[in-house]
Amino acid sequence: MTALLEVEGLKKHFPIHKGVFSKVSGQVYAVDGVSFSIGRGETLGLVGESGCGKSTVGRTLLKLLEPTDGTIKVGGEDITGLGAQAMLPYRRRMQMIYQDPYASLNPRMTAGEIVGEPLIVHNIGTPAERRERVAGLFERAGLRPEAANSYPHEFSGGQRQRIGIARALALNPELIVGDEPVSALDVSIQAQIINLLMELQDEFQLSYLFVAHDLAVVEHISHRVAVMYLGRIVEMTDKRSLFEMPLHPYTEALLSAVPIPKSSARGRKRVILTGDVPSPINPPPGCHFHARCPYAMPRCKTDVPALREVIPGHFASCHLHDGGVKVPLGAAA
């Protein structure tokens, strides 16, 4: 697979101001050195703790936010420094499905206008062709045709999410950053949308960066998965290795906290991680996870573990594997 997207050392820091006019009093290290690539026709799943920087990665690589540092290449071309005008052709190739559909849909436009807008912006088709395209997109996203005339507030949460999905598909993009694209949908419609995304991918070699909290969904749609923790990728590999042999303690905790949709799950306790969630304003020294890690060793408090290829194709940043791969993670030294 040739890489469509290559991200190298990406950083995004947000300044914190104390009061409206006063000086910068600190930084939120939202994304702090993230590297990955996505091939044509490939889905990279991105998971991690709430607030760890997933949405910021998505928005920065589409240059909806200016990166603080690092490079972003699309089809081998460096787009990191491009201005708005030069970005235009890339905008057409890369689309985003936003996490918060309510905040990302213009309340004064009808659903039909919202989905058709990218076609107008990029000057595609005649009005009649555009109407037809919009109707087709509505159908594929599971929206009723008459819904085209309604405004965003007239839809349910899940219906609004589908408007966002239809809009992202309008331009036949090459890369879609889906930020929790199916979390507002019931499981049946979720299945329809995931099946649709997989079909489109197989047909047009689409690439996805798929951010989600539902690990079953991630497992289903992804080829590879990256796990983030406090601004950094801590593990990345093909999905099979990740789910069968997680090499980072955070990934292990995440996998064992998945809720089970069965009657026997009643009253199950699954709080695995205790301890304070570390802050991206004051990231802890050493391994970001050390205060909550059940296996933490003295060196974890001081030395940053590098993300390295512990097993061919399987990257992890954890000192447990410094002297060779250690599985299971809790095994005696």
């Binding site: 299945a191 995931i194 539902d214 079953a216 497992e219 289903h220 099979r240 069968e244």
Partner: peptide, 22 residues
């Protein structure tokens, strides 16, 4: 209930991703 994706090996062992029930 039949549309719920489960975290299971079925989805992983298949090289071709299975369609979800809908």
């Amino acid at each position: 209930l039949g549309s719920i994706p489960h975290l299971d090996t079925a989805a992983r062992t298949d090289t071709k991703r299975a369609k979800l029930n809908e």
